[in-house]
């Protein structure tokens, strides 16, 4: 029998790619966290000698047209990317889940109002909405967090509402009522775990989108302040020098790709790990 497998209790283990993604992300996170310690140069220090220096022993990833060390700038850029991703997705997760959850559980006109707001937000393309908010508020880091947060709020609201609606009439909720569970116990024991899976998966995937959106907005000049070494800004600065100094655009691009890819790997792994049915198929 497969019984011995079932009690392994290590949900991510059958997903080596997700584990790899998690390891790389943890590494990137540590690098970002300790950027001031690790970075070989000051990311803002100009150096006349190093202008457009190619990757080499002095500057591992090369330097830009003002002689600033690209590796140091990428490390500091990671701080910005992770900062924006975590805060904006946290914002979207909190507000979206609360609004969607209440709408689903209470129903009635509250549900109507929330759902229509969500529909309106959904009808505007993500990047356009974020651009509009940034254009209205002005390009600063906090505004960027707010803009990306607003853009991703409706996704969480919709997921939470759908999941709660599904659960509200589930037979096992009725069964829980019939054994004498209190409403608070039902919310905690049955509704929350039921919606947690899809939310966790969506959170992980949203990190990837938030990093992409931050890069895109910064690339377009409506992200963080232009003197900040965000990945999008590095990409933007590199695009004009592609023929003379490919490294200025390619390494930030690789950093974005790697991070987004890893978040997606972890998200997919989590989706499988959190679904008991998929878990069964893998083991069978």
């Amino acid at each position: 029998m497969v019984d011995s497998f079932r009690h392994a209790g290590q949900p991510l283990c059958p997903h080596p790619s997700a584990v790899a993604g998690l390891v790389v992300l943890s590494l990137l996170g540590l690098l970002a966290l300790f950027a001031p310690v690790i970075a070989p140069y000051d990311p803002f220090a100009l150096s006349g000698n190093a202008m457009l220096a190619p990757p080499g022993p002095d500057h591992w990833l090369g330097a830009d047209q003002l002689g600033r060390d690209l590796l140091s700038r990428l490390l500091y850029g990671a701080r910005i990317s992770f900062h924006v991703a975590v805060l904006s997705v946290g914002f979207a997760l909190g507000i979206g889940t609360l609004a969607g959850g209440i709408a689903g559980y209470v129903g009635g006109w509250i549900d109507q109002v929330v759902s229509r707001c969500v529909d309106v937000l959904f009808s505007i393309p993500d990047i356009l909405l974020a651009l509009a908010i940034m254009a209205a508020l002005g390009p600063t880091l906090n505004h960027l967090v707010l803009a990306i947060g607003i853009v991703y709020t409706p996704i969480f609201a919709r997921i939470a509402r759908g999941a709660v609606l599904d659960l509200r009439h589930a037979d096992y909720i009725e069964a829980a009522r019939s054994i004498g569970s209190s409403p608070a116990a039902i919310l905690y024991r049955h509704v929350l775990p039921g919606i947690l899976g899809p939310l966790v998966v969506q959170t992980t995937l949203s990190f990837a989108f938030a990093i992409l959106t931050e890069a895109a907005l910064s690339f377009l000049g409506l992200g963080v302040e232009p003197d900040q070494p965000s990945w999008g800004i590095l990409l933007n600065q590199g695009k004009d020098l592609m023929e003379r100094a490919w490294w200025i655009a390619v390494f930030p691009g690789l950093a974005i790709t790697l991070t987004v890819f890893c978040f997606n790997l972890v998200g997919d792994g989590l989706r499988d790990a959190l679904d008991p049915r998929v878990r069964a198929e893998k083991r069978a």
């Binding site: 589930a170 037979d171 096992y172 009725e174 069964a175 829980a176 009522r177 019939s178 054994i179 004498g180 569970s181 209190s182 049955h190 775990p193 039921g194 899976g197 008991p276 049915r277």
Partner: peptide, 25 residues
């Protein structure tokens, strides 16, 4: 007071065993 009775003194066996167990526990 009814909650104390449900399950303890009067129990309910539901119609559909396929959906009345929570799949995540």
């Amino acid at each position: 007071e009814m909650r104390a009775i449900r399950g303890r003194e009067i129990a309910w066996v539901s119609q559909d065993p396929m959906t009345s167990l929570n799949p995540v526990y």
